Simulated assay, not measured.
Amino acid sequence: MKRFFFSILCALTFQAALPVSTAFAQDECNEIMTSLQIDKCSEASKAGADSQLNTSYHQLLARLETQYQANPELGEAYAVTVKESQRAWIKLRDANCHLEAFEIEPGKPAYVTTVNSCITGMSRERSVYLDKIAPDISAGSDAQTADVVCPSSDFNTFLASFSESAAIQKVFVQRPLTFVVTVNAEPEPRQEKRSLKDDQIKFPLVPERAKREAEGLMLTVKEQRGDKATAILQKPDTDYVVEYRFVRGQCWMLTEVSDFAL
């Protein structure tokens, strides 16, 4: 009996914050007076949460396809990882929610309501989580990047614009960005590769001309072959060397930064 009332309380809590489907009107869940309303509202809320989860999941896959046009193999690997993660999470969610209702007799309305409420809450949380992966920068609030277009398909022209504008860099940097640093190690220094998410990338990645001149840095094109190009930032007579690797899709995209300085 105690468990039954706890289930009702959970259902009521979720109804206050979650939309319901057209099959059961919102106003019918505002003031729940009967157990039948609890059951129907929990089903409606679960359906709404499932729908939102499905939308967030497919929007994420669409973002990956768009953001990784310059490197489709990496984008596909990312998408496969997302799909595997989602399948594993669904199994975990369902197992957790059946555990939540373990003390209630299966098949009873209270059991179904408890499971539905649990699934609703976890699915809403998962939707928020998926929405934060590979965020769509163009849809953000940064007005400086909203109208940025590809500077040029010619790499030299693109690099000149890219190096002078943090706004352009924010748009034409792949997420996650591969960042390679050189670290002290025995018997000799080694390179360590990291994968940076959007909030871990510090712009500008390439200093503008005025700063380069003030610090004695030189930015040059090291190599370009077809749809791949490498630029190098260095300070003569020092060990300061940073390489920027780009891949061309619809536009050039920075995919990897390697800092060789200790």
Rank of each mutant, 00 (worst) to 15 (best):
A62G: 07
G48Q: 09
Q69H: 07
N30R: 15
Q67T: 09
A95V: 09
Y240N: 04
A210R: 04
F172R: 01
E31C: 14
L159R: 05
A88W: 01
T230M: 07
D147I: 10
I133H: 04
A143G: 05
V181G: 02
S123C: 04
L233N: 06
Q250V: 08
Y244G: 02
D131N: 08
W252F: 06
F179E: 03
H58L: 12
F4A: 12
F158L: 02
I119S: 04
E208F: 05
S117L: 13
T55R: 13
P19V: 07
Q15C: 14
T255E: 06
D131I: 05
Q26P: 10
S117Q: 07
W89V: 00
F5T: 06
A23Q: 14
F5C: 08
D50S: 06
E105A: 14
I232C: 09
G140T: 13
A49M: 15
E100K: 14
T34V: 06
R126W: 04
E100G: 03
F162G: 03
L53F: 11
V20D: 03
V115I: 13
S152G: 04
A229Q: 07
P19Y: 02
K202S: 11
A88C: 00
D131Q: 13
N54C: 09
R93Q: 01
L36T: 12
S141H: 11
A101L: 10
Q86I: 04
A25W: 04
A17R: 10
